[in-house]
Design a protein around this nucleic acid. Structure first.
Lengths: 346, 346
DNA sequence: CTGAAAGCGCTAACAT
DNA sequence: ATGTTAGCGCTTTCAG
């Protein structure tokens, strides 16, 4: 491999000049610059990332921490991140935290030691990280579907869960359903409250009263969805069981469909079902699942672009320490209702 | 961050000694070693990966190239790789080749420049890489479901497709079916020939004659599976259509199930269907799909372990250049038949 | 068994 | 505008 030294000799200049020329520093003479570029190209010179990293304290690499790449949500995100990263010459280091704080912290340390130029953290660990764990002198970071400690505001790519659920529930309401059950995720989950709020908003928009009996909670699994739906479908009393079920993810919706059938009823003939996320299975089952699409890949791409911006800003701020202006960028990405056949007019 | 210099001063030795002690070199005095270790621990010293990489020409990082992490196959593999990598203090850099040789080559160059200590390449690009592209002075590499150029033998984790398909087809044969259709992947695909061979072997084992009419090809998609199954189901003539269908992946099996229904028939009542891969959807559809499980996560883990071995060997071979003994390790992982409800006795 | 010192390849001050 | 030079933090000869 040719080194900067070879280029310098061949071009008849010093290594300093080669460095400046190749790093697009404005002060180099145009003639020198082209000469250096030519020589570099001829020699196939590529700056050694490690050597450069040693002095700049950063490499062309970003760390991506997700709870689990093997989950349908996060591998799409990873793809989105990697796509724009590679388009910008950045390598991405993949880490699975399993939502465990200790693993996350460990990765953070390793990533920092390896001098990644940036960090994308998706999905919060179950325990909250000690305040400022990231803040201190680390590389720029952006969060995805996760917020930093209140106060310290991190750039983030977020989902407006309330709006998304509202969209989901409004769909069956528009179809004429009045008794709409909602199966939320575990109450402790980050966005359970926002989801419930969205459900209530949709109801209010349609002038339908809220009935606490119609709300259940489950753990995002098929079995959980099955049990919750079974419970809701068994509701008795003056108002009777729901004619439509909205669930906090597609797996639970699949469980709900099974529960409907187990009762001898049909989807969507007797009960409409609407999911959330638009996992691949949604269009593979029969009937195909009407759901709300969460654009994970797009979110990954957005996160990476945001990060690139932060990284650039950090570089520029080398001396002109212009005090983090224009900070706290939080981007909300829109969800999309995907109408298929699992929900029909009342 | 404490540097090796701090440790040296604090322990009253030279940096050379600290380096040797911390790298478990045999020649250091036991007393010196423990003292150095204590000081290092107290100072929270961690060797800088880049600085070390500059001199050893390798970092504690491995590159993983897959066609696409977002596909059900490869994100499981990635998880397996990452699990054992992190257990061994290695970071993994994720790359998506999209099966394009140019992208793969580009990643290879970047990874090499970043001094990854090893490489895992899964799934071949459509075009074959120029011979020896990897060979030359690169870090150790292991292949997964992919073979190197003939001659040069790479360590690899492979699947015996013939055996797996034989297992798949034998299942319906054992169920009493005699007319078994097989939908293969595209003929150009790496293992199409092996799969077909497996199909024929199963037939031969059961004393059933081979009928070329019963074999179709499709592109691994639902639609492809649908079309191929539709064709097979429409077969006329003395022997009639198949009563069972085996397909080269689960998506095509889903399509086949739809094709059966489109004909007014039932699965498995009228036609049995067996898939391949055991994607998550296999147990989510109705009836649940009987299929052959390909242990991708396990394969990823195996690949990483294999690679770790190669990396260690490479380090040891620093001076005692003992000519690559014990090379060409190819490991075949077993598949497993997962019996569910989509295939029933004739 | 240990110390001294020479780099690994590059960037960034500091001169000029 | 460009050359010189001092590191960045570590490993590894080479001496002793």
């Amino acid at each position: 491999m040719a080194t900067i030294f070879d280029v310098a000799r061949e071009a008849g200049v010093s290594t300093g000049t080669v460095s400046r020329a190749l790093n697009h520093r404005p002060e180099v003479d145009p003639a020198t610059r082209t000469r250096v570029e030519e020589v570099a190209a001829r020699l196939g010179y590529r700056a050694d990332p490690l050597a450069r990293g040693m002095v700049t304290r950063a490499t062309a690499t970003v760390g991506l921490i997700v709870p689990d790449v093997a989950s349908p949500f996060f591998h799409e995100l990873a793809r989105g991140v990697e796509d724009v990263a590679s388009a910008h010459g950045q390598l991405v280091v993949l880490c699975n935290s399993d939502r465990r704080l200790d693993k996350e912290l460990q990765y953070l340390a390793a990533l920092r030691a390896h001098r990644v130029g940036g960090l994308i953290l998706a999905g919060a660990p179950h325990e909250a990280p000690p305040d400022g764990e990231l803040k201190e002198k680390g590389p720029p970071a952006v969060l995805v579907i996760r917020r930093g400690p209140p106060g310290a505001r991190w750039p983030a790519v977020l989902l407006d869960y309330a709006a998304a659920v509202r969209q989901q529930v409004a769909h069956v309401l528009a179809l004429g359903h009045r008794r709409v059950g909602y199966v939320n995720g575990p109450p402790a989950h980050d966005n359970a409250a926002a989801r419930l709020a969205g459900y209530r908003e949709a109801l209010a928009d349609a002038g339908v009263g809220f009935d606490a009996q119609l709300v259940a909670e489950a753990d995002f699994t098929i079995e959980g969805g099955y049990a919750a739906a079974r419970h809701l479908l068994g509701l008795e009393g003056s108002d009777g069981p729901p004619t439509a079920l909205a669930l906090a993810n597609d797996y639970m919706a699949l469980g709900a469909m099974q529960a409907v059938r187990a009762r001898g009823l049909e989807v969507p003939g007797d009960v409409s079902v609407v999911g959330f996320d638009d996992f691949v299975v949604a269009r593979l089952v029969e009937p195909r699942l009407t759901t709300v699409r969460v654009p994970m890949r797009e979110m990954g791409a957005r996160a990476m672009r945001l990060l690139l911006g932060e990284m650039e800003r950090r570089r520029d701020r080398v001396s002109g320490d212009a005090d983090d202006v224009g900070g706290d960028r939080e981007e909300f990405v829109p969800t999309e209702l995907v109408v298929r056949e699992s929900a029909a007019p009342r």
